[in-house]
Design a protein around this nucleic acid. Structure first.
Lengths: 243, 243
DNA sequence: AGACTTTTAAATGTCAGACAAATAAAATCT
DNA sequence: AGATTTTATTTGTCTGACATTTAAAAGTCT
């Protein structure tokens, strides 16, 4: 079932790969217990530390969870949306921060995806989600708000909009894009004037969602995208010639 | 810089977390070498195996790479799009296969995202990407094609469409959704009649992209979505009452 | 002197055995 | 029978050692 070639390189990676394949292919089902570390070591003819390194690799991807004690061991993990979110966010953040993805490219992708949710959200949004958006808009209009708090509220607003589509897969996909951009957004929304503009657009989106007017939501998101990218360009321009 | 509380639970996870934060926050930059395992063990006041488990966790997420030899060690990895793709695909596949995400939900999300790319792709697609789509359509019309090969070609077609948007972030986001659904798609496109229908819609999409007609691309993708979900429902129906 | 070979040192990869801690089942006692 | 203690199993961690890889330093030969 899970054998291991005799080439001596990176045994723990090979073992992790074998077990991962077994999980993804369905040979190991959710909540099934893996053999104990000692048994796995015996089975793969390696030492226990090597097995442990392999298991830690899988734990890092939330593929297994471990439990100590008599009936403990490593169990195939049911991947929760929360786990998937956080992995997606980590990956997206790293891609943005160190792979030469421009803010413009990230912004375009983010709004393209968000507009994809708009039609569904106009159709399905609950009163609860609408109330969340209104509450966040109110928070954004408070005077003493820090840039970080404003952007956190911005994320929460957009999160509610996306969740309105009622499709957890879309929510999961967008969580990365929206949250990964937050640090970059922090740097471009620092003037009162730009906050006012953003809040006005947010209000328009909430109103359109309340009226289940998908076209207006889409058009307003397009405006928000244009405005955000314009702000980013202005900031970049100011950086280039600080005089 | 990276300290460690004295609570005794899961030291390797804590160390991995500390180093991950240092990387994500930018305290450790790309290609920078981490201290050696022995030095880290000393620094965190733990043993080398514990440090190694932590490093393997990070390696599993492609955050670091290790190199043996005199000038070897653990280096902060520049996350490549390929690495991000494969992680995205693994995560999405697991979400679909074991988290009670229905085919319908996944399908809706996938086409919503794909239609988000349609407008951009109509504007920017290259002649090369158009040629790829035509070639895949031709392959799909070959008589002796297996279901797996047909679906692989289907994935390649849609991949070319998404890549046409010229936004690597969108490509990365959609790679997971499209590829993770392939095993499920394999099961529903097995009749000649359904293949014909799909090929016709693919041709219509390619033609519209050639004419840079975003509205038709969008409308045709909507038809393809409806048709795919209908096929899936029929298959589910047949499964329910096999007589 | 220059090119090739050998040695050496540093680092990761692996192993073996041991103990600690947690946990649930089994055994024991009241 | 119920509560308590014991015990066995399993993961978490430590110590120390050896193997392997790699590049630089040292040495050797032409």
């Amino acid at each position: 079932m899970k054998i291991d070639p005799q080439n001596p390189a990176d045994l723990s990676a090979q073992i992790a790969h074998a077990i991962r394949e077994a999980i993804v292919s369905g040979a190991l089902i959710v909540d099934e217990r893996l053999p104990s570390e000692a048994e796995l070591a015996d089975q793969f003819q390696v030492s226990r530390p090597t097995v442990r390194e392999a298991l830690k690799r899988l734990a890092a991807q939330s593929l297994i969870r471990t439990q100590r004690g008599a009936t403990g061991g490593a169990f195939v993990n049911r991947l929760s949306f929360e786990d998937a979110y956080s992995q997606q966010i980590t990956t997206s953040t790293l891609l943005l921060s160190m792979n030469a993805v421009s803010f413009d490219t990230a912004c375009e992708a983010r709004y393209a995806l968000e507009r994809a949710c708009a039609a569904l959200s106009a159709e399905r949004r609950t009163a609860d989600q609408l109330a969340t958006m209104r509450a966040e808009i109110f928070r954004q209009s408070q005077p003493g708000l820090t840039d970080e708090a404003f952007c956190a509220s911005d994320v929460a607003f957009h999160r509610a909009l996306v969740d309105g589509a009622g499709n957890p897969v879309l929510s999961y996909q967008l969580a990365g894009a929206v949250e990964a951009m937050q640090p970059l957004m922090n740097m471009i929304t620092f003037t009162a004037r730009s906050r006012e503009e953003i809040i006005a657009l947010h209000s328009k989106i909430a109103n359109a969602l309340e009226a289940r007017d998908a076209a207006t939501v889409d058009a307003t998101l397009a405006k928000l995208e244009t405005y955000t990218r314009q702000l980013a360009m202005d900031v970049a321009e100011q950086r280039r010639r600080p005089a």
